Simulated scan of single mutants.
Amino acid sequence: MLTHVIERILQALAVMLVMSALVFVGVYAIGNPIDVLIGPDVSQDIRLDTIARYGLDKPLWEQYFTFLDRVLHGDFGRSFVFGMPVLELILSRLPATLELTLAAVLGAALVGIPAGIYAGYRPDSPLSKLIMALSILGFSVPTFWIGLVLIMTFAVELQWLPAGGRGETARLFGVEWSFLTPNGLSHLLLPALNLAFFKLALMTRLARAGTREVMLTDTVKFARAAGIPESVILRRHVLRLISIPLVTVFGLEFASTLAFAVVTETIFSWPGIGKLIIDSIQSLDRPVMVAYLMLVAFVFIMINFLVDLTYFALDPRLRKGRA
């Protein structure tokens, strides 16, 4: 087990190093942020001084190694637009996106997995057919369209929920959270629901397919022959056997939602890192763009690492294989 963990850590470090080079070159080789930072009517001396101040007069490879040295010391540079450390800027927006992501993915899992298990256990019931029809709808309808419908229905027509913003927040462990206040929770519901639709459909269909497969195995047949109650079979056998693919999808969906909640944050004016990266792309704020993409790579690597460790906890065959 320890050997496996060390191997995965070394692989993660190698991937992060490669990703840092690809991200840096890809971002810094495109566009010229000086055209955005200063006006076209400034003198050539001011223009050259600005280029030198941001280190853009150096070769690209030298800029990369300077960047890598700063990163190793915990410094991702300063934002061209906001004029503050990039890491501080991203961390100030991260709780909003993390809160939205957790609400969406956890909600989708808590509803989708039981619904999928029921649909797989009773495939011919009317409720199961309704569940599968709704899951198809979740796959088919674009996220931005669902967001607009939610705003028109619940914010404009019914006026039950606010159309955008984060609302009031409360501090917990030194971080501001919306779900701790009634007003903030009302602002959280619509964007979380918008993000959860696709995840809900995916979790439902995956749980349904896994349940249908497991119900035909000898394990379930022998359990039924032994007189074990159906509730126990579903809890101890079916859920346990389908847990590994569910954990995999949950981890990947959490990482992708955390990294790419751009559309939802834009529609609902949610002040997270997704909206920040859109603003940074428009202004060619290179340090923010690079740090954001590095964060995305780090999140995916860490989620895969945690999912891999969860496999060992769920499947004893893997532990025996490493023994």
Results as ranks from 00 to 15, higher is better:
2 L>C: 02
14 A>T: 11
16 M>D: 04
20 S>N: 09
20 S>I: 12
23 V>D: 00
27 V>E: 08
28 Y>C: 14
37 L>W: 10
43 S>E: 08
46 I>T: 09
48 L>F: 12
50 T>G: 07
51 I>P: 03
51 I>L: 13
52 A>G: 08
53 R>W: 06
56 L>A: 09
57 D>W: 09
59 P>T: 06
67 F>N: 02
68 L>D: 00
68 L>M: 14
80 F>D: 02
81 V>Y: 09
86 V>T: 14
87 L>W: 14
88 E>F: 01
91 L>G: 07
93 R>G: 00
93 R>V: 07
94 L>R: 06
97 T>D: 01
100 L>S: 06
108 A>N: 06
113 I>W: 12
117 I>C: 04
118 Y>E: 05
119 A>S: 12
120 G>N: 13
130 L>W: 13
140 S>T: 15
149 V>C: 13
169 T>N: 09
174 G>T: 10
174 G>Q: 11
178 S>K: 15
181 T>S: 11
182 P>C: 11
186 S>E: 12
198 F>M: 05
206 L>K: 06
208 R>E: 11
209 A>P: 00
213 E>F: 11
214 V>P: 03
217 T>N: 10
222 F>D: 08
234 L>N: 03
235 R>L: 14
241 L>E: 00
243 S>V: 05
244 I>S: 04
246 L>H: 02
246 L>Y: 07
247 V>D: 04
254 F>A: 03
260 F>P: 05
266 T>I: 00
276 L>C: 07
282 Q>W: 13
289 M>R: 02
290 V>T: 14
293 L>C: 09
297 A>C: 12
299 V>D: 06
299 V>E: 03
302 M>L: 15
303 I>Q: 05
304 N>D: 14
306 L>P: 05
308 D>Y: 05
315 D>G: 02
319 R>G: 04
322 R>Q: 10
